[in-house]
């Protein structure tokens, strides 16, 4: 009974006017997702909307059920960060059938006939630019490099594009950089740690590492520290490090001089655009259906200029 009383009080306190947005996230495993969820909620509030949120804990079926709940509640719009590009299709179908506008955040669905907004960073270009900058540093320093990439879940189109960006950028530096290890992580830190440790044992001369997501850096740092290979930029044994996302750990590593380059997704831009487009659709206006975040690359040379735009800076200060 006390449980019901808590629900009663909670629901009374949440009564608001204005549109209701259903926000469904597949996971909150990485800081990027937490920052995105908070930013979308803040943007909804700024626009006078209320929201209901759900997190599927990595379970596509649960996410389907949660969004079905939103639809049965007749929310005015849905913003979803889906598990992957395929399992979101039945969800788009269900939202379209109920005439509820839906925005797909961060992961582009496979081609389908549904009507939906997509908001996604240009994973390929951002990764390519970041790795290109690592290549330039390598060329300036001279010598030969053995490279390793930590790959995300290959069912995730973002992971595929980041890997492709990495590979295409390396072509220009094939005379000095040789790819010796590709570590599949499935976006899992434990798998990343095991993979990086194995790769470094098999190839102790690896000195060029790109992580497809910043949230895997703890695994890389741990493995490098164990081998006494974790040194700041400028040290003779420094391993060139690059990442993708712009989280708090990357921010701290950049500021402390351990990270060379980071490709940053502009979370604020993505969330503002996602919410704005949903509102445009709700109001019957013409909405921007394909939103692309160009992101930016931050490195030791432009740190003063870009550090403030890095979303991880807010988390680091907390």
């Amino acid at each position: 009974m006390s449980l019901l009383a808590v629900f009663f009080l909670t629901s009374c306190s949440q009564e608001k006017n204005g549109p209701v947005i259903g926000i469904s996230f597949e996971t909150l495993q990485a800081e990027y997702w937490v920052a995105s969820l908070e930013s979308i909620k803040a943007e909804c509030e700024r626009n006078g909307a209320s929201y209901i949120e759900s997190v599927a804990d990595g379970d596509a079926n649960r996410q389907f059920e949660q969004v079905s709940n939103f639809i049965s509640r007749r929310v005015d719009g849905i913003i979803i960060a889906p598990k992957d590009a395929h399992t979101v299709i039945p969800i788009i179908k269900a939202a379209n059938k109920a005439n509820i506008p839906i925005a797909i955040y961060n992961r582009v669905p496979v081609e389908n006939s549904g009507e939906y907004i997509t908001v996604v960073a240009d994973n390929y270009e951002i990764a390519k630019s970041a790795v290109d900058h690592m290549g330039r540093i390598a060329r300036e320093k001279g010598g030969e490099y053995k490279a390793m990439i930590l790959i995300g879940d290959l069912g995730d189109i973002n992971a595929i594009n980041r890997r492709k960006g990495f590979e295409d950028a390396l072509v220009e530096y094939s005379d000095i950089v040789e790819l010796v290890a590709e570590v599949p992580t499935e976006w899992n830190q434990e798998k990343a740690l095991a993979g990086v440790t194995n790769a470094l044992q098999a190839n102790p001369d690896i000195n060029f590492i790109f992580s497809s997501s910043d949230f895997l850096f703890p695994s890389i740092v741990s493995a490098l520290k164990n081998l006494d290979k974790y040194h700041p930029v400028g040290h003779e044994d420094h391993v060139l490090l690059g990442g993708f996302d712009g989280d708090a750990m990357a921010y701290k590593m950049l500021m402390e001089g351990y990270l060379d380059v980071d490709g940053v997704q502009d979370v604020h831009f993505e969330c503002v655009e996602a919410v704005q487009s949903i509102f445009d659709m709700i109001e019957g206006k013409e909405a921007n259906m394909r939103i692309r975040d160009p992101g930016f690359v931050i490195h030791q040379g432009n740190i003063d200029e870009f550090a403030g735009r890095m979303w991880g800076a807010d988390f680091a200060s907390e």
Binding site: L4, F7, F8, S11, C12, V20, E65, S68, N69, I71, S72, R73, R74
Partner: peptide
């Protein structure tokens, strides 16, 4: 039944045909 009745009063959309179908399917 008690939970259903209470939630029907306090949760928008809970007591609706759509949500009942949804519950059934889940």
């Amino acid at each position: 039944v008690l939970y259903y009745i209470v939630m029907s009063f306090i949760t928008p959309g809970f007591f609706s045909l759509g949500n009942n179908w949804n519950l059934l399917f889940n």
